[in-house]
Amino acid sequence: MESRGHILVVDDEPSVLVTYQLILEQQGYRVSAALTSAEARKILSNKDVDLLLCDLSLEKQKSGFDVIAFGRAVDEKLICVLLTGYATTDATDWADERKIPVLFKPIEIKQLLATIEGLLKEKQEIRQGSSR
């Protein structure tokens, strides 16, 4: 089965990270998982990530904002989705500014999959449009 895209999942909670990875892989995506922001940066540097799924609160005061910012710095058209348990308005405003969807935990898996699918499809269409 051909991969539907490369997704990087970042979460500091191993069980959550593993289960997201498994679910997404089950859906046919190529999934990379990062427990820390440093790991995430390493993977992002390879520039083959289609979509970044990042938790807001990471280990030791590290924030999902940093990871997203890094990803965008590497690839300015990188598709990002911010996951969070709770969000201040500052956080949601920050995400709105960058047109990054925010999903609040507990996340409905169907909603998560629909969002990812929609975003990737959009990207593919743009790419196809531009390549034509």
Binding site: E13, S15, V16, T19, Y20, G85, K105, I107
Partner: peptide, 10 residues
Amino acid sequence: NNPLEAIKNC
């Protein structure tokens, strides 16, 4: 939330 997220995913 996080454990719940894992359970839900499982």
